[in-house]
Design a protein around this nucleic acid. Structure first.
Lengths: 336, 336
DNA sequence: TATTATTATGTAATCGTTTACATCATAATG
DNA sequence: CATTATGATGTAAACGATTACATAATAATA
């Protein structure tokens, strides 16, 4: 294995000069720099990252905590993160948390010695230490950014869309089609995202002087199956809703299946509105009307934000709000 | 930061003893071992992984090359890998190759200095050096395992199912329903997986004395959109197929949409058979009949295999073949 | 030209482990 | 009891980079 020493010998300079030529080229005269570069090329030297990480006390790696990689929604965000990370020579370490609260593992494995320079959390259960807020945070914990979700009380840097507004736009769309009996299939309890969407749902109802009916809100957990179950519950009501707004596309797709199984026409009997606009939304029958989130961009911006923080820039824009859009397709229909 | 030195002082022993107590406990007397353990607990010492990695020249990290994380099929495999990795205190570094051939990056970033101790490749474009076979492989490249795909000529360790047999079972099912005009929507050209599935398709046809008709095979690229396009092409034939076998579920779902758009009844006019059994397959309309692959297990076994190789075990089972199953649902129907 | 400021380079310490080797104590052997 | 094997511990040298500091070379000034 060719080390910095070999290069130094080959170039006829000291190892310090080699190191400098590569890391801070302007601290070195052009002549020597060229000698070094030549030697590097000739020898095929590539710096030992393990040694560098150790010495520099950082790893050029970010840890991405994903509640569930199998969820295509998250996958797109990860892609965005990856792209930016690669551009800035960072590596992406994946942690599928599967809902577990795995603080100790994260801590002892990665954080305590800067195995990861920063953390991006895609889910709602953020590692415990961050819940206590910046000031009381053990300095060993590295910078932390949330994508999608955010924290209500603590100003954790976060990237996402305005979920209240998005939900409101969606539900208003249903209202504009004449629906008055609109159900909401909610996501997991501890998701602020879903609280916001619920709020948007309520806002929209209020704007039409409709009263919020608790029985029309059923909780799911973002999975297809939970959407199915929730819809099944809703269909058992004496008065069936004529439209249902779902906190994500998967539950919407599950709900559609439940409708079909119950013999409902789609969208004739029931209009379905999703959230996220995953690729599959265009391939359901009928095609799913949904709220589009810029997933790739969310990932990109989250990574960019993290890099900013890592580079010591003040967290100017502590919370990045990206635009959403209502994607009109065929699963919502005017009420006759 | 508390280092091994602090622990040594606290326990009243040398750093070497501390190191040994932790790494090779039986090389140390019980008495001292206990002293050390106490000191470790008291001080809250946790070994600096960066230093360890550097000194040991390995990282306890595996690199997983994924063609596309957004594909739920791969996501499940990654989950399996993650689970085993975690169990054995390995970390998973994710590389979304997006089809790029990014050999140099992998090499200079990771491989040359054991930033990753091993590689698991989920896709078909395996890093160049491995294509040349073990004997002519630069020893810097770490052990390599393929999941799903494999290499025809070179005995690269691989985990997967018997794709020829699986496809044959699937198509025989269609034949048993009376279909005689069966199309195949193929995956990308360079995928051995798909070659195998095509072979299975041919085998099945032959077993029913049907001749293989080239026009009934259309190429896709595993995406929903490509399935849609392929099916559209097939529907333009003077004689439409009565059934179509797709190399993956996404293309099948795309194909179903194309059928609907063309005014075909599903499964009345056309039976559709998928491959993989992704979660969405149960939520299409009609529910998709498909070949089930044990995705999680593929990931788990791939990681296990890699760990075996890393631990120096001879690659006894160089190729692991897992069972598949035909998942009968509603998208295939007897031809009337 | 002599002196000082500036820039370029080298020397050597350092990061926190692991590990070969030396040393010392203890147990087993003759 | 002397000698040798065995086991437990310590000493110190790595690993390959970065970087504070010292020194040498050059440029700027008087």
């Amino acid at each position: 294995m060719v080390t910095i020493k070999d290069v130094a010998k080959l170039a006829g300079v000291s190892i310090a000069t080699v190191s400098r030529s590569l890391a801070e080229p302007d601290k070195v005269s052009e002549k020597t720099r060229n000698k070094v570069i030549q030697a590097v090329e000739k020898s095929g030297y590539v710096a030992n990252t393990l040694a560098q990480n150790f010495r520099r006390r950082r790893s050029n790696t970010v840890l991405v905590l994903v509640p569930d990689i199998a969820n295509p929604f998250f996958a797109n965000i990860i892609q965005g993160i990856e792209r930016v990370a690669r551009q800035f020579k960072y590596r992406v370490l994946l942690g599928d948390t599967q809902g577990y609260d795995e603080n100790e593992r994260i801590y002892s494995d990665l954080v305590s010695h800067k195995q990861a320079d920063g953390i991006i959390c895609l889910g709602r259960n953020i590692p415990f230490p961050y819940r206590k807020g910046r000031q009381s945070l053990d300095p060993a914990w590295p910078p932390f950014v949330m994508a999608c979700e955010y924290h209500r009380d603590i100003p954790v840097p976060a990237v996402g869309i305005d979920n209240v507004a998005a939900a409101e736009v969606g539900v208003r769309h249903l209202l504009s089609l004449g629906h008055r009996h609109i159900a909401y299939i909610d996501g997991p309890e501890d998701s602020i995202l879903c609280e916001d969407r619920l709020q948007g749902y309520k806002n929209a109802l209020k704007s039409s002087q409709l009263r919020y009916e608790k029985g029309l809100v059923v909780q799911g957990d973002f999975t297809l199956a939970s959407g199915y179950r929730a819809m099944t519950t809703l269909l058992q009501r004496k008065q069936r809703p004529s439209a249902v707004f779902c906190a994500n596309d998967e539950m919407a797709i599950g709900a559609m299946q439940a409708c079909r199984d119950a013999g409902c026409e789609l969208p004739g009997d029931i209009s379905v509105l999703g959230f996220d606009d995953i690729v599959f939304a265009e391939y359901t029958s009928p095609r799913l009307t949904t709220i589009h989130q810029p997933r790739n961009e969310i990932g990109e911006r989250a990574m960019t934000l993290l890099l900013d923080i890592l580079s010591g820039a003040s967290p100017a824009a502590n919370r990045v709000i990206l635009p959403f859009s209502l994607e009109l397709r065929d699963s919502t229909k005017r009420l006759e």
